[in-house]
Every structure is written in C-alpha cells, then in structure tokens.
Amino acid sequence: MKGPLAALKVLDFSTLLPGPFASLLLADMGAEVLRIESPTRVDLVRVLPPFDGDSSTSHAYLNRNKRSLALDLKHPEALAVVHKLVAEYDIVLEQFRPGVMDKLGLGYEALKAINPRLIYVSITGYGQTGPYKDRAGHDLNYLALSGLASYTGRRDTGPLPLGVQLADVAGGSLHGVIGLLAAVIARQSTGQGQHVDISMTDCAFSLHAMAGAGYLGAGVEPAMENQALNGGSFYDYYRTRDGRWLSVGSLEPQFMQQFCAVIGRPELAGRGLSPKPEEQKALKREIEIEIEKHDLAEWQQRFAAVDACVEPVLNLSEAVEHPQLQARGLVTAVPRAGKPAQAQLACPIKFSAGLEAPRHTGVAVGAHSAEVLREIGYSEAQIAELKAAKLLG
C-alpha cells in the first residue's frame, strides 16, 4: 500500500505554503519527497505559531512524510550534490523568484542537460514572464490583481480577507500538482521532461469560472452582491438569535419550498427565482427576520431531517467533530519521534487501494542529510568533509 505515486522522486526546494502544500499531497500519495533546505536561512513556517511543544504545527503538517537535506546552495560543492540527486530524483519543485535558480546553476536548462527526463515545476506569484515576474507579492495581492477580490465581499465593507490562502493553495499548490502529474503522463509517452510554469495569479484568474465566462462572453461585470452566488440573492449566510450563522443554499424550487416551510413562511417560496435585485433584497430581509428568531441549535434540529441545502456555519473545533467529516477520516494521527502522535488534517483524496499511513511529521533541518548522501555514493569521510566545509550547515 505505497500509494499511486510511489514511483515518483521529488526534490523540493520550496518554502512557506504553496510548494510545501503541493509536495505534501505528493508525499501523502506515495511520492518520495526530499526537501532541500538552507542550513542558515530558516523556512519561516518552522517558526510560525502556534507550537506543539517546540515544533510549529504548520511545519509539522506541511512537511510530513518528507525527508530533509540541509544544503547551502551557494557553496561550490552544492552543485555536485544536486547533480547526483537529479540523476535519481527526476522531478524538481521550486518557488524562488524567476532567475534565482539559474544564478545558482540549478535552472531547468542546466539540470535538463544532466537528465532529459527532468520535470521542473516553478511556482511563483506572477510566472516566469511578464512585467510583474520579479515583483513581490502575497495571496491577498494575487486575489486583488486577478479580479477575484472585486466581487468577494460586501458593498458596505469591501473585499474580504479570506481565512484561507486561496491563491496559494487552490492556485499554486493544486495547479502545481496538476501540471506536474500531467508532465509525468506526457513523459511516459515521449521520454522527455519539461518545465511547468505555475503563476499563482494566473491560477487565481482561472478560478473566475462562471463570472469570467459571463464577463467575457456577455459583458456582465461581476461586482459585490450583484450575482446569485455572491450575496446578490437569498443564497447567503443568516445570523441566528445567538449570534451564530446559518448557510442557506436553497436555490432549486424544491429546496426553496422546503426551506420556506421550515421557517414558517411558505408564501416566500415563489420569490426565490426573481432576478430583480430589489426583490431579492426584500426577500433576504424577510428571511433574516425569521432566522433571527431562534438559536442555531434549534435551526439545526429543525433542518436535521430536511434536504433543503441548509447547514450551520461550524467553527473548526465543531467541524472536526462533525459525524460526516469523522466518517470520511479527515483527521489522522501522525507519529513523532519520542512523542505521542500528533493529530493532523488527513489527505482528502480517497483511493480504493488505500494509502500508506502517515510515517512522520515534519523533521528538523537536515535530519536526513547523511542518509541521503550515502544513498548517492558519498563515503563517511566525504560526508565529514562536507560538514566541516559547512556545506551541510
């Protein structure tokens, strides 16, 4: 039960969130992932609170099932080490700004000359080309420039700073994995690798989906609360008497009828289909009045046996305990050396053949340095020399 990606060997030069989340998915699905980490410049996720003992919970999660090789890429001997690794690890994942890996002698063309089967995935904010390619940015900036933030929020308060890193994860991480695996499939027939250029802004832009199709095809500009699915209709969140929230997604007539019956206003059912903004606003106000009459627990009880696309807004601790998420096994226990196992988010992808249980949480910088060097032919004396030269930190 090694996982469907057990044949893949990945050198991961990335830090922070996008690249590490991508390689986490690969490792969970069986790929052998070796992190190449600086022995002097710490990955900031390692010092990101909260901590479980002396370990960052984010680092422990994002880097589970991965080995770590500490390597000073500016050291002359580092090139030789990476070149030997690339002969076996024929996938590279990196997240530096464009040109940085080239300056280090580790760009795609240089490594491709050693291994033509190399698949080289670069995840950046704006991609390898264009006037913004060298510009710094964060998730919030990518969502802003892609246009997504312009219609995600409320008219009176503006765009929402999302609680999840949408461009980083849905953009960089997931699209990075898709591009990598597509290149692997292509290599099976051609024998050749390729460079996969992932821009988090590009990928965020592609998430416009229906709104983008509407604008490009029909000239309909999306804005806050002017669409059926962004607050422009009754499809929304409603505050309960105790200050909690209820999600109402009863778009189809059969669901709307059941919803309105449960809240005691069956006459409202026919108004859900109205395309007129002023009528939707009036309908929302009617629903708000009814939902505010009871606490969330009572609404949960009333809707428990009703299939109307109505669910409570749970906080994370409640979601962890929800029977549906528990039944799907979305929390797993990950072993730690000398300590009790740590609870972590599980791999969400289910395979009928199953997946190997998590092996370990994220490890210390260079925890596997000597082990990896032995595997590629270095003697104990050579390893000692590299340590003395501070190549390994």
Rank of each mutant, 00 (worst) to 15 (best):
F351N: 08
K387Y: 12
K281T: 14
A60K: 10
F259D: 00
I36P: 00
R135F: 02
E321W: 10
S122H: 07
G147D: 05
D54L: 13
L273E: 15
E88C: 06
H294N: 10
V306T: 07
T157P: 00
S274V: 10
M1C: 13
A381G: 07
K103M: 13
E279M: 09
S352W: 04
S250Q: 09
M29I: 11
E371Y: 02
E278I: 09
L386A: 03
E279S: 10
R265Y: 07
P18I: 03
A218Y: 13
L246G: 01
Q258K: 14
Y132D: 12
A213W: 12
D12L: 02
G212A: 08
V372Y: 02
P253H: 06
R155D: 14
R187G: 02
A6R: 15
P253S: 05
V81G: 01
H75G: 07
A60Q: 12
Q194M: 08
Y151N: 11
N65Y: 03
G99F: 11
N141T: 11
A7E: 15
R97I: 07
P159G: 05
R271M: 08
E298T: 10
V177M: 07
S14D: 01
E288K: 12
F205G: 03
I198Q: 02
R336H: 09
A282W: 09
L5R: 13
R285A: 15
A80Q: 15
A381T: 14
K339P: 05
Q301F: 02
I376N: 10
G377E: 10
E311A: 15
D12M: 03
T240V: 01
L283V: 08
G30F: 06
V320C: 13
P131A: 06
G191L: 10
P323Y: 12
D202F: 00
M29Q: 15
V372M: 08
R328G: 04
A269Q: 01
E380F: 02
R117V: 03
S199R: 06
I349G: 08
I178N: 11
V331Y: 10
A357W: 07
E286H: 08
A144W: 03
V248P: 00
E298Q: 08
Q382V: 01
H195C: 06
V47F: 03
A337K: 15
L316D: 06
H59Y: 15
R187Y: 04
V81M: 05
S55K: 15
L145M: 14
V45I: 14
P340I: 09
V220M: 13
L391F: 01
L48Y: 11
L71M: 07
L268R: 02
N63E: 11
G362A: 04
A182F: 04
G354T: 08
A110I: 04
S352G: 04
A80P: 07
S55M: 14
L251M: 11
D242W: 00
E267D: 14
Q254T: 13
R328Y: 02
S23P: 01
P348N: 11
G179R: 00
K390W: 06
T332D: 08
L296Q: 00
I383K: 09
Q324Y: 09
P159M: 01
G125H: 02
A183L: 05
T190Q: 07
Y235W: 12
I185E: 13
T40G: 12
A381P: 03
T361K: 06
A370P: 05
K284R: 14
H175M: 12
N141I: 09
A149K: 10
